[in-house]
Nucleic acid binder design. Structure first.
Lengths: 327, 327
DNA sequence: TTGAAAGCGCTAACAG
DNA sequence: CTGTTAGCGCTTTCAA
């Protein structure tokens, strides 16, 4: 690898001067600048980011922590992050944690070592303690997921309200027997969406039937299928189902079809996220739409502000109820 | 940030000794080892990967270049890569290029600067020239996509044969009017799958009808919908459709339903990839299954071998025809 | 306008 | 078994 010394030698200047033309930092005479640039092209020299980072303690790289890329919800959020980051001359690196603490620590090390300047965490299963410790010394923000008590700034939607809206809508179109397919309540969003579900029922004087509240065992299609299977076997079958993710809803939809039932006539179905696949099902899926792209943009803006030492406040974004054929 | 000197001072040893206990490189007396370890925990010291990399010119990080995480095909491949890499003590960083050459060069710089040890490229739109230049000096392998003339080792399936199998199967169950929904033929896989399509037709004495060969304008659902819309309007409507990806097939499936036609009675449908969505459609999708996880494992093994200076050969993997309800 | 030199945090060769 | 020292590739004072 050709390095800055080689260039300096070839251009007959000092490494400092080469560095200066590289960084356009301070005045260099026109003639030496030309000489240096010539040497650079002739030697095909490319400066080492590693050396530069070590010196400047900056990398202009952003880490994005996601539990898994298999969830299409993240796709659009990441698009937003990338768009914004690239415009501000930052690049992003995607890190799948698979909710594995060991992985986490590897990625945390990246920031400790100035290989990255900041972290956007979208992982709900991240170790809160570690994250908060890290956040004391390094720029971190949370996106979609967050800690209610935490000191870490975040952007997200109002999950409780979104769920409330979904259920209120189901009630208004005549449903009284409404089931909930939730994820594991170790996730904050799951707890919040459940609260919204309960609030809506209460507000309309519908009694909570705990046997209609189901916790999916996986976040994949199978989770939705399994949950729906249980609900279909229920002696008092619900007439509507709210699933806390489109993936779960699609699994449920599948199970309903398999049992020869009709959506929405026999059972109405509402999902959450508005992933692109939700328009491809038959019938198409009524769902809560999150402003994923915008959320990504805001997250990127927040972390970059934080990196630059500015004060950042958490931001709650709006959601929408998208009514389609499944209700 | 506390560094190796602080630890050395605290433990009253030299930095070399600290480095030794850190790397378990050579013998250190038990008592000093204890002292150093104590100093490390007391100071909460964590070694800087940056400094280490700069010194060792190694990062144990693998770059994985994908065009976009929105395609679920990549999900399982990446799982395979991660599994294998982590076992061999390498970590992976996902890089979305969005087929944007500027992005590409940023990620290429990471390897030039020893911020990464190797690259697995799955991006079909990557600049071949740059990639090949880079490959002369750095470990690179291609996965799924490859250059037919290239000097870069790869792992993939036999796309021509896979398409041939799909079409042969359609013919054997009685179809003669078989359409192809292809992607842009700038992609090698698209050209190869088309060749397989044509070979099967020829072998069974079916004349090629070019108006049944459609190139989708996008790789998303809409691409499949658009293509299918055209085919449904065709004066001589095909009885079977082979789409070169499940996403396209699902778009097509949707369009067929929208027009009130029945799958497979009116039109049979075959996809490609066997993504998890393909079991969630109604009817479920017949498709060509690629060994995505295995492909990922092999790609990781190859790149690590290459990094370690071993010779690596390209590997062609087997595919499977998975027959479901859509045919 | 330019150069010399220190130093970012670490490892490894060498010497003792 | 341990310390000294050079150096990975770069930027940035300081001095000229």
């Amino acid at each position: 690898m050709v390095n800055i010394h080689d260039v300096a030698r070839k251009a007959q200047v000092s490494v400092a001067t080469v560095s200066r033309v590289l960084n356009k930092s301070s005045a260099v005479s026109f003639s030496t600048k030309i000489r240096v640039e010539q040497a650079i092209t002739e030697l095909n020299y490319e400066p080492s980011t590693l050396g530069r980072n070590l010196r400047k303690l900056e990398s202009r790289l952003l880490l994005v922590l996601i539990p898994s890329i298999s969830n299409p919800f993240y796709t659009d959020v990441i698009k937003g992050i990338e768009d914004t980051a690239i415009n501000l001359d930052y690049n992003i690196l995607l890190c799948q944690t698979n909710s594995n603490p060991k992985r986490e620590s590897i990625y945390f090390n990246l920031i400790k070592n100035h290989l990255a300047d900041g972290i956007i965490s979208m992982d709900p299963t991240v170790n809160k303690r570690n994250l908060m410790d890290l956040a004391e010394k390094h720029p971190i923000i949370q996106c979609s997921e967050y800690d209610i008590d935490g000191s870490i700034a975040y952007t997200t939607i109002n999950n409780e309200l979104a769920a409330y809206h979904a259920i209120r809508y189901l009630i208004k179109i005549g449903h009284k027997k409404i089931a909930l397919i939730n994820s594991d309540e170790k996730f904050l969003y799951a707890r919040e969406r459940r609260q919204g579900y309960e609030r809506a029922l209460k507000e309309f004087g519908i009694e909570l039937n705990l046997s209609w509240v189901y916790h999916a065992e996986s976040l994949g299609f199978e989770g939705g299928q399994q949950a729906m299977r249980q609900l279909l076997n229920h002696p008092n079958r619900p007439t509507a189902v709210f699933a806390v993710s489109d993936i779960l809803a699609i699994g449920a939809l599948n199970e309903i079809h398999t049992n020869g039932l009709h959506i929405p006539n026999d059972i109405a179905l509402v999902g959450f996220d508005n992933i692109s696949f939700s328009t491809m099902t038959h019938p198409t899926l009524t769902t809560i739409s999150q402003p994923m792209f915008k959320m990504g943009c805001i997250a990127a803006k927040m972390i970059i502000n934080k990196i630059q030492g500015k004060k950042v406040e958490s931001i709650i974004l709006d959601h929408d109820l998208v009514i389609r054929e499944s209700t």
